[in-house]
Each structure stands twice: as C-alpha cells, then as structure tokens.
C-alpha cells in the first residue's frame, strides 16, 4: 500500500500482527527511546481501571434527583456543575446533561468513533464501540433498546444524541418511583452505567 496524506498508510505492518505482541513491541521501542515511561502507563491504567468510572456519573445523577438547585445548574452548565463535585478532564472537557422525562427518552452514541464522557463514565464498554451500536442506534433506537431489554411507551419520543464534536453527553434518567426517602448514596446505587447512556433504566430499590 502507498503511504500518503489520505491514502492508506501501512507503517504498522512492520510490527507483529498479533495484537498482544504488537503492543509489547511498540511499548518496548518507545520505552527504550525514552519516549514513554512504563510507570506512566501503569498510572494511566490505574486511573481508568480503578478510579474513573460510572460511579462518578451515578453520584451526579443521584444529586440531580435529590437537589433541585443542582439539577437546574446541571442542565444549564453540566461542565461547571460536575467540576464542583471534582469531576473534570480528558474526554469530558465539555459536558451536557440531558434529562429523561415522561415524554422523552435520550440515548447517546458516537457513530463516527467512540466519544464518551470519560470523567463521568470511564472507558466505554465494548458494545458502545461496536459497529452494531454505531450503525443502528441512530436509525432504529427502539430496536437497539430491545436488545437491552428496554421497551418504551409508544407515546414517548426518543432523542438520540450523536456525539460528533467535543461535547460529551450524559443522560439523567427518571428517578424510580419507589425511591422516595432514599439518601444520595442509596440513590447512586440505583444508577447503572447503561441508564446514563440511555440504553438502560435505573434499578428499582429493593426493600
């Protein structure tokens, strides 16, 4: 293959094809040249495996469910509102929160790549990055919801947000009707990752 600005490029073809060997080889080259520090790789993995994930988003949703002023601020300027809770950073520099209502259900996708609000939800799950989800979520969101076991009332509209720019979206699901009286911590336990992408609903409290 020819290498050019917009044609296919194939420098990667010089590396081993097996992905596990490929990443090892590339890491070794970059480390030996002093361009990558192995401890920095470990720190990045620790951040996204152990510290940044959907529990962050769940706390934001729980607060929005229990504090009307916060909810208003979140819907007006989510980036600012979540920064106040300590959530900010890469792939979440600009965030918009969209609320589910009795009339409207929101779903988030990235048809062009895999844009996702990392500071609130972490690294996206495999299905979010799959060809199936990227192709179908915009054209047949209700059939995609059925794959997740979710059926919406016929009179509820669906709004699909295709993340085509650097704005990242989080869905504020409807608060479960049986959750009155629960504090923020207990509410956050009901908020699933998929409910903040829009492919799921929050759990009902178990008493």
């Amino acid at each position: 293959m020819e290498s050019s600005e917009n044609g296919p490029v194939s420098a990667h073809g010089h590396l081993p094809t097996d992905p596990e060997l490929r990443v090892k080889a590339l890491e070794e080259i970059l480390v030996r040249k002093g361009l990558v520090e192995p401890a920095a790789l470990d720190a990045i993995i620790d951040m996204y495996q152990n510290r940044v994930g959907p529990r962050n988003g769940a706390r934001v949703v729980a607060r929005a469910w229990s504090d009307q002023d916060f909810r208003t601020a979140l819907l007006a300027d989510a980036t600012g509102a979540i920064a106040g809770m300590g959530y900010a950073g890469r792939q979440g520099e600009h965030i918009t929160a969209v609320e589910n209502t009795p009339d409207m259900h929101n779903i988030v996708v990235c048809t062009l790549c895999s844009c996702y609000p990392w500071p609130l939800l972490g690294i996206p799950p495999g299905w979010y990055k799959s060809d199936e989800y990227r192709a179908r979520a915009v054209r047949e969101p209700r059939k995609v919801l059925a794959d997740f076991g979710v059926t919406l009332p016929e009179d509820k509209a669906v709004r699909v947000w295709d993340s085509t720019a650097e704005m990242r979206y989080i869905v504020i699901p409807e608060r479960p009707p049986g959750s009155m009286g629960l504090d923020e911590e207990a509410l956050a336990e009901l908020v699933t990752r998929d409910s903040m992408i829009g492919t799921g609903l929050p759990m009902e409290p178990q008493f």
Binding site: P19, V23, K24, L41, I45, Y48, P124, R136, D147, F148
Partner: peptide, 26 residues
C-alpha cells in the same frame, strides 16, 4: 444485535489497557 455487557467490564484484556495507555502517553 448489540450485545450488552454488565457494568464494570471495560478493558477485557490486559493488552487493551496497555494499548489505551500507550496511545495516551504517546
């Protein structure tokens, strides 16, 4: 069909994590 996965699984293989980190560090 889209195949849902339970909460919590995002970097299924250790090389996925390494590829992510290497890309971000580079």
């Amino acid at each position: 069909a889209v195949l849902p996965e339970p909460d919590g699984i995002v970097l299924e293989e250790s090389w996925h994590a390494r590829a992510l980190a290497l890309t971000l560090a580079a």
